[in-house]
Design a protein around this nucleic acid. Structure first.
Length: 243
DNA sequence: TTTAGGG
DNA sequence: CCCTAAA
């Protein structure tokens, strides 16, 4: 006989929660394909819910409490009730504390996002601090990456703005001016090198015909801005382009 | 220490 | 994003 109902235990919940932690949006949508955005943005904000988070790193609760908007990612129940926990917080309850760090350390592969997904993702990671728990873990985990957060629209805009002012080559200054205390988030760490690399990638991605139809969905204006600056500030500086 | 480039 | 020769 296929015992079904009894199976809905912590094992599945843990797996889903791991996915949600790795990527709130994709994880939640994988969990509930017909996810309603508004519904998703609303979440339990009780003291009790926050206490559930105490099982994890202490800085997490603090980060959540101090942040202006504190919408924990809630997950709408699919169809049947009682099958899955109703929210991410409930899922957290199913997660053994001992596995907290291990699960948090999990990273899903980076996926391309639609404009809406990107905005939502930015909102979530900035508001819930669920993006990246281990602040320093230098271990050879996480694909050897220290700072693996996606660039946000705002960051890209600041970068472009900075290039306009400083040109290329003075990344350190640009960083200090545009990325000093950029966001109050814990660690949007963006080094001068990161910034340099980002500009290189932006040029590669949006210069020419920008045939990359699935690239990061920047504003049309921003893209044109990049393309315009690319002429004056090409990445390999040696490429002098006289008209 | 910061950059430029390549990986 | 990481690594490293150069500056």
């Amino acid at each position: 006989m296929e015992s079904k109902a009894m199976e809905t235990g912590s094992s599945d919940a843990m797996e889903i929660w791991a996915t949600v932690l790795a990527d709130p949006l994709d994880g939640a949508q994988a969990y509930s394909p017909d996810l309603d955005i508004q519904q998703f943005l609303e979440g339990p904000q009780d003291e009790h819910d926050l206490d559930c988070l105490l099982g994890g790193p202490t800085n997490m609760k603090e980060a959540i409490l101090t942040h202006e908007e504190v919408p924990l990612p809630a997950i709408r129940q699919p169809e049947k009730e009682g099958t899955w926990p109703a929210s991410a917080v409930d899922l957290l309850d199913c997660l053994p504390k001992s596995d907290w760090r291990r699960v948090c350390g999990f990273r899903a592969p980076r996926k391309r996002r639609t404009p809406e997904q990107m905005l939502l993702h930015d909102h979530l990671v900035n508001a819930t601090c669920l993006q990246d728990m281990p602040s320093e873990s230098k271990g050879p985990k996480h694909g050897h990456r220290r700072n693996n957060k996606h660039w946000t629209l705002k960051e890209v805009t600041r970068l472009v703005d900075g290039v306009e002012e400083y040109g290329v080559g003075r990344w350190s200054n640009l960083k200090k001016k545009q990325f000093s205390t950029s966001a109050r988030s814990a660690r949007p760490t963006r080094t001068a090198e990161n910034i340099k690399d980002k500009w290189r990638n932006l040029l590669k991605a949006y210069n020419r015909d920008a045939k990359g139809r699935f690239l990061m969905p920047l504003d049309k204006m921003l893209i044109e801005w990049i393309q315009k600056l690319a002429i004056v500030h090409p990445y390999p500086k040696s490429r002098r382009t006289y008209e």
